[in-house]
Nucleic acid binder design. Structure first.
Length: 887
RNA sequence: GGGCAAGUAGCUCAGCCGGUUAGAGCGCCACGUUGACAUCGUGGAGGUCACAGGUUCGAUUCCUGUCUUGCCCACCA
């Protein structure tokens, strides 16, 4: 027989060693599941499938907590639905992340002192594919490590052959319908990555800069003052605008101003967009480098001058400043103006500056020829799908956010001047200049037969991710998977990409497939650091890497912490103590399992009928089953998880296991067999409830149970049936035993107050009132758990013992005759204190019960409840007063 | 500038489609080697549910306003 460290014999089999150690266990079970094919959908039996497209992690490096959050919630849903018997498909994959990956690769090259031009496009693409292989492998391993029960046989990558075909097809179809167009517009230009980005990829940051008041000479002499935050853009000015009703400047309208440095003569225009109160009331107009001015330029047909090169230096239009970097140019310009006394004033000014999400560099609005998606018609259809309930959001407030964005949408710039991503399916004829948009590469120009050249640009990464729910199922082909699994059921992702991704999927899904891509959108919060700061790629800190947590606590602990960390849609913090609490819970369950397995030795006999204690725990179990199922239905994963723990720890371990020891160690084999059977029953059901949260631990325990218990529903818990509520929660024993537990608690409390040694057995006398039967049947429950013996039931006409501590609890009067230990004074004080509390209670209840309006307006059950409460309090009060009198 | 969320025990957070003595984990205090578990057990202390009004028989929960914090959206030079 195995020995414990302290020398006591251990009756538990060696396989259930304590404490629970997740390392090894987790990887082992994952392999078993994968090899058995449990994670692929069951064959088509006509049942409605439950489908989730896993948000594809970016291949920009390793896993982060965002992925852990996604895996946790989605795996909970998938495992739960699988256990319910639904055919489930959870389709995993990865995303090439275009600019994100581009940044990673460019940084790697920079560290070697190289640029992408050293490699050339082919060489750079080779580098990309090498990286994809490496990063993809890491990510796949980590997703497995988290326990994601997804279908790896259907894994996809946004740039694999099928998905690339889908991208081309989507582009061509949208282009044919006029929903994709090319044009020269003011775009957000990232001078560092040297590419256009979409408005969503620009992050605005409020900074305190300067507002320069600049004197522009007038052609007819004199000057006009204009305020600007970007003096270098003076070089691109093509007008000066004032408000039409601004009389201060009405006399200047026919004249011209002279742009400093370049000496260009520019007209005055009037436009109601000008704010008379701001600055001098006159504004310089730079249509080539400011969105506002661009609009104004369009309205007034102004010249549009581009003063920047793609790398952010100034071009030949900048005169003497050509070749300078944009920031140097600003300083030089100010100096130049100051030298000529053309700066009237400089004031601090708070304004917002756009930065590129990836590179962090300041965005320059710049004229550029790009490809765009015409979003208005797509957005209208998407908004309708949400308004009419075809798509539902959880929490609901995100639907409003979604709609607001859709209603104010701008066209989407989808071309990027980088080398990572899907090349535009666009070719130009070298001879005649013809543009050809085609899903397949054409051999030659259809017009003149000339040679073709493919457009060098690639697509925004979100264009391909926008197709994800259907491109992964085989679209544009009419595949079995597409027919069976589309539309998908739930889309769950972080709320931070609702516009980037969710919105695009809805727009493109409806347009290209005619159906919404998913029915439910569950948006989860972000995982923050313990101090509340955001985990960021640009500023990594120790603790940001989930790998550490997996090492120390295992995937189950991390998952449970994430699932129970908060409420839907709200951010959560990575709190170390919560991970410890998860681990402790796992250990608690593990030990309960050891106990249960050990107890099965008693199951050789035909079990006795269930006792009220059995009925109580089975009733509590059924209530937990019902609650958990309802909470999962409504996406309340945190509440569900906490409820399961509450049941396992507080009901099962603290009360049922403790009380089962009476029967297990007693001398009635049939009773012991019943206790063992109930233990196994409750444990196996609890494990199934918990499995979606802690797949590894529950599978491990299940495997040990298999050897000890018969009648388990399945060889593997992952495919075991989800528990059913058998309605035992309404059995009277549920309340009866709860009352006994309340009595036990009260006795323990009284013992403590009377300074009775915890281990000491003391006598108790109970006047059971209406609980005589249950107390008779389960007196051992009270005896053992309250450590009282002998326990004597007194008739209602019998006088209570004199020198005793008196307690009223669970509808019973309990007396603990503690000879020589009862301090009469202290006892009287204690009882007086209780009297006061009860009196207050009676008064409170009495006030509302004597209130006519309460009686007439409050619902009947509320009134009844209050009556009951008053009655109970009054009863207890009477008993205590009687006791006081006798002292 | 507009919008959203949050403000509940020392800390991290639940709860509240109005009605219980407002809960959990951690922390704290006291006690405990009772054969599942010290990653534990038992008992306890600790909250004017941000503030001010209003609706109601009754408000932590609903409404209005204020303050604080966080986030999103927005072309004010």
């Amino acid at each position: 027989m195995a020995r414990k460290v302290d020398g006591r014999p251990a009756a538990t089999p060696d396989v259930l060693k304590r404490p629970y150690d997740p390392s090894g266990v987790e990887q082992r079970w994952y392999r078993v599941w994968e090899e058995a094919g449990f994670m692929s959908p069951a064959p088509n039996d006509g049942q409605e499938p439950f489908v989730i497209s896993m948000p594809p992690p970016n291949l920009t490096g390793a896993l982060h907590y965002g992925h852990a959050v996604i895996v946790t919630y989605e795996d909970i849903m998938i495992r739960w639905r699988r256990m319910q018997g639904r055919p489930t498909l959870w389709l995993p994959g990865t995303d090439h992340a275009a600019i994100g990956t581009n940044t990673v690769l460019m940084n790697q090259l920079a560290q070697q002192g190289r640029t992408r031009d050293d490699l050339g496009r082919d060489g750079f693409e080779q580098l990309f594919w090498d990286w994809i292989g490496k990063s993809g492998g890491t990510i796949r391993t980590q997703i497995r490590r988290l326990g994601a029960s997804c279908d790896w046989t259907r894994e996809r990558f946004t740039m694999d052959e099928g998905l690339s075909r889908a991208v081309n097809e989507a582009f061509v179809r949208l282009h044919e319908k006029g929903l994709i167009y090319k044009g020269s517009y003011l775009v957000n230009w990232d001078p560092q990555d040297q590419t256009a980005v979409s408005a969503l990829e620009v992050e605005h940051e409020t900074v305190v800069g300067s507002l320069w008041y600049v004197r522009y000479p007038l052609a007819d002499g004199g000057h006009i003052v204009v305020a600007t935050t970007r003096p270098e853009t003076i070089l691109g000015d093509t007008a000066i605008a004032v408000h039409p009703e601004d009389e201060r400047y009405s006399n200047l309208l026919n004249g011209q101003a002279v742009v400093p440095v370049v000496d260009r003569r520019i007209p005055f225009i009037t436009d109601p967009a000008v704010d008379r109160e701001f600055g001098s009331g006159a504004v310089k107009v730079t249509p080539g480098h400011d969105p506002n001015d661009y609009q104004m330029g369009m309205r007034h047909d102004l010249d549009m001058i581009n003063i920047l090169n793609e790398d952010g230096t100034l071009n030949e239009n900048a005169g003497r400043f050509a070749g300078l970097d944009r920031f140097d140019a600003r300083n030089e310009m100010v100096k130049w103006l100051q030298d000529r006394d053309l700066i009237e004033n400089i004031v601090d000014h708070e304004h917002s500056v756009g930065h590129a999400e990836r590179s962090g560099s300041i965005i320059e609005p710049m004229l550029s020829e790009q490809w765009f998606v015409k979003t208005k018609p797509l957005a209208a259809a998407a908004a309708n799908a949400v308004r009419d309930g075809r798509i539902r959001f959880y929490p609901e407030r995100f639907a409003d956010e979604f709609l607001r964005w859709m209603d104010n949408i701008h066209d989407w710039c989808i071309s990027r001047q980088i080398w990572v991503g899907h090349r535009l399916p666009v070719w130009y004829c070298r001879s005649c200049g013809e543009t050809i948009v085609s899903a397949e590469a054409p051999a030659s120009c259809g017009e003149c037969g000339g040679d073709l050249e493919q457009d060098p640009d690639v697509l925004d990464t979100w264009f391909s991710s926008g197709l994800w729910p259907f491109s992964t199922l085989g679209w544009p082909d009419d595949t079995d998977d597409m027919r069976r699994f589309y539309p998908t059921t739930v889309m769950q992702t972080g709320y931070d990409i609702i516009f980037f991704w969710v919105a695009r999927m809805v727009m493109l899904g409806i347009e290209l497939t005619g159906e919404v891509p998913f029915r439910h959108v569950y948006l989860s919060g972000l995982m923050r650091r313990e101090d509340g700061s955001k985990v960021s790629k640009s500023d990594p800190r120790p603790g940001d890497d989930p790998e550490e947590v997996l090492e120390r606590f295992g995937a189950d602990a991390l998952r449970y912490m994430i699932a129970t960390a908060g409420t839907p849609g709200s951010d959560m913090k990575l709190v170390w103590q919560k991970l410890e609490a998860s681990r402790n819970f796992m250990n608690k369950l593990w030990n309960a399992a050891r106990f249960t397995v050990e107890a099965q030795a008693a199951r050789s006999l035909e079990p006795a009928p269930p006792t009220d204690v059995d009925r109580w725990i089975l009733g509590r179990l059924d209530r937990t089953v019902a609650e958990t199922t309802a909470r999962l239905e409504s996406f309340n994963f945190g509440e569900a998880g906490r409820g399961i723990q509450d049941f396992i720890w507080n009901d099962f371990c603290d009360w049922f296991i403790e009380s089962s020891k009476i029967r297990l160690h007693g001398d009635e084999p049939a009773a012991a067999a019943r206790a063992a059977a109930t233990l196994a029953d409750v444990l196996s059901t609890s494990l199934r409830l918990l499995h979606p949260y802690m797949p590894f631990l529950t599978e491990e325990i299940w495997s040990h149970l298999l050897g000890a218990v018969s009648g388990l529903e399945s060889d593997h818990i992952i495919v075991a049936p989800w528990p059913q509520d058998k309605g035992r929660g309404s059995h009277p024993a549920v309340e009866e035993i709860s009352a006994l537990a309340e009595a036990v608690r009260a006795i323990r409390n009284a013992r403590r107050e009377a300074n009775v040694e915890p281990g000491k057995w003391i006598e108790a006398v109970i006047r059971p009132g209406p609980r005589a039967d249950i107390l008779e049947a389960e007196s051992d429950f009270v005896k053992r758990l309250a450590r009282v013996d002998p326990l004597r039931l007194a008739g209602s006409d019998e006088a209570p013992p004199k020198n005793a501590v008196a307690i009223v609890a669970g509808g019973m009067e309990i007396y603990l005759p503690l000879e020589g230990m009862v301090d009469l004074e202290a006892e009287r004080d204690r009882l007086l204190g209780q009297t006061r509390e009860l009196e207050a209670e009676v008064v409170r209840a009495g006030e509302s019960l004597s209130n006519e309006k309460f009686l007439s307006r409050a619902p009947a059950d509320v009134v009844q409840k209050r009556r009951d409460r008053r009655e109970q309090a009054a009863g207890e009060l009477a008993a205590i007063r009687e006791r006081l009198d006798s002292l």
